[in-house]
Design a protein around this nucleic acid. Structure first.
Length: 732
DNA sequence: GAGCATGCCATTTTT
DNA sequence: TGGCATGCTC
């Protein structure tokens, strides 16, 4: 066995595989075969060390990575490895919480709330308590709550802290105490619904392991060998979970790359990987620096980019795949040109024999995908957008999931509220309010109130009947879901509601796509069920399916082999590789993003994001920026990214117009600055000139002077909204 | 109680 | 720009 391995692995990788008995830190550069090392390490434990699969825990960053790992491991071993624990932190922890529900303030069938559900819960709290949404914006409050949770702080801990610190004074303290109040109510309402948000899954697991010795030692003994991938992107809660499980036996292997840490906005801290050697005793550390993915020209660029970061374990990637083609840098006039030229380049590469699924277009923000999608459609280039419109965030899918949660977890009044009149069945606001009042008085969930509608006062007979009918349906589905396969339950609900045919009949293309999405959902349930049956030899029930689907993401739905160009954000590109990679929008305020330019740390993280993108490419890398970009409905001039400015020109292939970059790097006024005439006035019907679009006619004027928003019809056929500064009142 | 129109809002990254 | 909430009307 070992001999087989030594043919397949280099000496560092082999070290990773065989050093299984103590804490191990693997600093694995991009493309250095870390997944491969993890897989072989598992194989080594299973075959050589005879460790039972259920004693091994492997935590990956995405579900997709978990599945891939499992598949590749089985291919290597040539037999199925069923009871190995492989999954994301969220998945593994949600499993633990369901097993250990007896020790927790919620049942095994708890619901999992996504961000939208979190928001609607908060909105309701704001309404009841009269909080001001301007003063306490939802995203900000949610972010704060998330931060508390990933640092393992529940409201009661904070309350204690603020008491210790003495009474709060001033505006800041008032703000903090309001946040704490909101957090407290929010947490209460989650529990009332027997629901957890994403952060709760980690928080409650960490707490349980900390506080309950029996449970802790159970999992310490179960997870005799622990491996954590992408350790650079773990947060404090995740750190604590690992420590509770593996701190005692110390058989823990963490794999990561500090240069690829890109999730600090979600509470991840690079500290975990930088300090691993202090957190555990006698840590062995191994560096994987040989890259098996990219040519040297690409790695030279990657190394040059990341060298500008200060806080890192310094390392240089190298490969023996030859020099290859140097990366190309393109300067375009605007985002449309960028998209069109990219589409042309894609077709050119395709005609040279590169298959579509070996090409990817990467960008910083999802909003950038639109122009590419359009250009690719125009050119009939097969493409798939990864992650922009979340399948699981679509209304029709969430409605269906709302039904499923309502019948699975009858405490989940929020989910029931979502679907109680969707599709409309004549249970309006008034009726709902009366039901809610009744439920609150009786201290029962909405589900019970609906079931006991006879006892609810003040209801009109017609309403009461409609509620009773609905209650009957719910009860039937629920009854069915306890024993029948989930696929049957889903089909029964859809049939009873007549949802798909109704959407299909409407004729509205949006509704037709809803019908299609529901059909796709059914086939995903069916796919899940088939997998489940082969693995568990019993049919999948609703209670098996719900926890699975709640942690699914759009990323997990990309068909592997599909012959299409992938369009995705740089974040989503983590862990992937393609022959040809395009990175678009390399401009100041886009990459680095304007929201992340306030501190050195955040700029370094943006730089890492660029680095992650670059290191996805095997043979060809094509970078671009636009000199002018439309944001919402106005045009802005842009400057090339700082990250381009700090690079030597000879890293790139002969640039068509190298002067562009030099010009861009000269200090220039930030925005709206090329046309310098002062005091321009515009009127309807006036002739104006634009450097690119040529002569045009002003159709409407909104505002005064250079800042006025104009609608202009250009002679060349373009009709656009633009700000006054961008056009000249005289021929150019 | 349902559907429509209007006006307002925010617009980074996601398990 | 467009998605969402609110308010208005039938």
């Amino acid at each position: 066995m070992l001999q087989d391995f030594s043919k397949e692995l280099n000496s560092q990788q082999l070290q990773v595989v065989t050093n299984t008995e103590g804490p191990l830190l693997v600093l694995a550069g991009a493309g250095s075969g870390k997944t491969r090392s993890i897989i072989y390490r598992c194989a080594y434990l299973l075959k050589e060390k005879q460790v039972p699969p259920w004693n091994i825990l492997v935590v990956t960053f995405t579900n997709k990575a978990a599945r891939e790992l499992q598949d590749r491991l089985e291919a290597l071993l040539r037999f199925p490895v069923r009871s190995l624990w492989v999954g994301t932190f969220h998945r593994v922890c949600s499993r633990i919480l369901r097993y250990e529900a007896a020790h927790l303030p919620f049942g095994a069938n708890f619901s999992i709330y996504d961000e939208d559900a979190q928001k609607s819960l908060l909105k309701k709290i704001y309404k009841e308590e009269g909080f001001d949404r301007q003063k306490y914006p939802l995203p900000r409050v949610l972010y704060r709550i998330g931060r508390y949770k990933s640092n393992l702080l529940l409201p009661e801990d904070l309350a204690k802290d603020s008491q210790d610190a003495g009474s709060g004074r001033g505006y800041h303290d008032e703000f903090e105490s309001k946040i704490l109040r909101i957090y407290t109510l929010y947490q209460q309402s989650l529990l009332l619904n027997q629901a957890l948000d994403f952060d709760d899954i980690l928080l409650y697991t960490a707490r349980l392991l900390q506080n309950n010795e029996t449970v802790r030692s159970k999992y310490q003994q179960l997870f005799r060998y622990v491996m954590i991938d992408e350790y650079q992107d773990t947060n404090q809660a995740q750190f604590e979970i690992v420590r509770q499980i593996a701190g005692e036996h110390q058989r823990v292997c963490v794999v990561g790359d500090d240069d690829q840490a890109i999730y600090s906005f979600r509470g991840a801290t690079i500290r975990n990987i930088l300090e691993f050697e202090r957190d555990y005793q006698n840590v062995m550390s191994i560096r994987l620096e040989q890259n098996y993915r990219s040519t040297m020209s690409i790695l030279n660029l990657a190394n040059a980019i990341i060298r500008n970061n200060r806080r890192r374990h310094s390392k240089d990637l190298w490969s023996d795949l030859g020099e290859g083609e140097r990366p190309q840098l393109f300067a375009y006039n605007d985002e449309n040109e960028e998209a069109n030229r990219t589409a042309e380049l894609v077709m050119k590469l395709h005609s040279e024999g590169v298959s579509f699924n070996q090409m990817a277009v990467l960008y910083r923000t999802n909003a950038q995908s639109r122009v590419f999608e359009y250009a690719f459609m125009q050119n009939k280039i097969p493409h798939s957008i990864v992650g922009s419109l979340h399948f699981y965030q679509r209304k029709e899918i969430k409605d269906l999931l709302g039904y499923l949660s309502s019948i699975s977890n009858t405490a989940d009044s929020e989910s029931l509220l979502r679907v109680i009149n969707e599709p409309p069945r004549g249970i309006g606001q008034t009726t709902v309010n009366r039901l809610l009042t009744f439920a609150a008085k009786a201290r029962i969930p909405l589900y019970q109130a609906v079931q006991n509608v006879q006892a609810v006062e003040d209801l009109q007979n017609a309403s009461r009947k409609r509620v009773a009918d609905f209650a009957q349906k719910l009860a039937t589905w629920r009854e069915m879901s306890l024993r029948a396969p989930v696929l049957d339950v889903v089909k029964a609900i859809l049939d009873d509601l007549d949802l798909i045919p109704q959407y299909r009949r409407s004729g509205d293309p949006k509704d037709i796509s809803r019908a299609e999405n529901l059909t796709e959902f059914v086939s995903s349930v069916s796919e899940f069920s088939e997998r489940w049956v082969t693995e568990h030899e019993s049919p999948a029930l609703l209670a098996d399916f719900l926890p699975f689907v709640a942690l699914q993401t759009d990323m997990d739905r990309v068909e592997e082999g599909a012959e299409s160009v992938r369009l995705m954000t740089l974040h989503n590109a983590k862990g992937l590789e393609f022959d040809c990679v395009f990175i678009a929008g390399l401009e100041e305020e886009l990459l680095p993003h304007r929201m992340s330019m306030d501190s050195r740390e955040s700029i370094e993280e943006e730089r890492r994001l660029f680095y992650v993108g670059v290191t996805r490419a095997k043979t060809r890398l094509l970078l671009s920026y636009a000199k002018c970009r439309r944001i919402y409905d106005s045009f802005s001039f842009t400057r090339p990214s700082l990250f381009l400015q700090e690079l030597e020109q000879d890293l790139f292939a002969g640039n068509k117009d190298p002067a562009d970059l030099a010009r861009g790097s000269r200090p220039r006024p930030r925005k709206r600055a090329t046309v310098t005439e002062k005091d321009k006035q515009f009127r309807i019907g006036q002739q104006v000139w634009h450097s690119e679009y040529g002569r045009g006619l002003v159709l409407s004027v909104d505002g005064v002077g250079p800042d006025a928003r104009l609608t202009i019809s250009f002679d060349r056929g373009k009709l656009t909204k633009i700000i006054g500064t961008f056009v000249s009142t005289e021929p150019l």
